Computed example of a mutant assay.
Amino acid sequence: MVENDSHTLDTIFHALGDATRRAMLGELAVGERTVGELAEPFTMSLAAASKHIKVLENAGMVRRDVRGRTHVCSLDPAPLMSADQWLRMYRRFWTDRLDTLERLLRAEDAVPPPPKKPLPGKEGEKR
């Protein structure tokens, strides 16, 4: 089971590791898009866009529906939830560390500074 989860996360993060694919997911979060619509902002061929979409499909984040000669893609957010659950563990880790740092800094600010010692030399002498 752990290996399966690890493989799934590897596939998800691999798919998310490319800016073009992340942008495509952003478009699909708004609504369905054809392969041509997903390719358009990147001035890439339909074949290149299709390769990116295939990676997203393999990660389970995109569904492709063939309607005649048109391929329509839609977002399946469930795998993103798996990645978010994994990331939450680290979010808690950093939140706890930052909360501890904040407490330490506030405690340090609450302690008055020690009185300043006079500089060595003769009293009353101008410098």
Rank of each mutant, 00 (worst) to 15 (best):
H7L: 15
G17L: 15
D5K: 14
G68M: 10
A59N: 01
F42V: 06
L56E: 09
A48N: 07
P120D: 09
K117H: 02
A49P: 01
K126V: 11
L46R: 07
M89F: 14
D109N: 13
T11P: 00
G124C: 12
E123T: 07
T20M: 01
K122H: 14
E123I: 02
E125C: 07
H71N: 11
A47Q: 14
R106M: 12
S74N: 00
G17W: 08
M1A: 11
L75F: 08
P77E: 04
P114I: 05
L105P: 02
S74M: 13
K51F: 09
M81K: 03
R88S: 12
T43H: 04
A48F: 03
D84A: 15
L80N: 00
G36P: 01
G68S: 12
C73Y: 02
R91N: 03
R69Q: 13
R103W: 02
E108T: 06
K117E: 11
D84R: 13
L46E: 13
L101Y: 03
P114L: 05
S6L: 15
D18Q: 08
H71T: 08
H14T: 12
A19D: 15
E27R: 03
T11C: 06
S50R: 10
A83W: 04
G36W: 07
E27N: 06
E40F: 09
F93Y: 10
R22P: 00
A29W: 02
N4W: 14
T34D: 00
H52M: 06
D96V: 12
V30M: 15
A29M: 15
R21A: 03
L105V: 06
R69H: 14
D5G: 12
V55W: 04
L101E: 10
R63S: 15
V35A: 10
D18A: 14
R92V: 14
A48P: 01
A15Q: 04
A48V: 10
K116T: 15
C73T: 01
L75I: 08
R92H: 05
A39D: 04
V66K: 11
L25M: 03
M24A: 08
P79L: 01
D99E: 11
M44F: 03
T100D: 06
P113T: 05
D96Y: 11
G31I: 05
G17M: 09
P113G: 04
A39S: 05
E27F: 12
L98S: 02
P113W: 09
E57L: 11
R63K: 12
K122D: 12
S6C: 07
L28G: 00
A29N: 11
A15G: 03
E27H: 09
G121V: 09
D5V: 04
I12W: 02
M24D: 11
I12F: 04
E37D: 09
E108M: 09
L56A: 02
G26Q: 13
L80H: 00
D65N: 10
P113I: 12
P114K: 01
F42G: 01
L25E: 03
A23P: 00
K117M: 11
R127M: 15
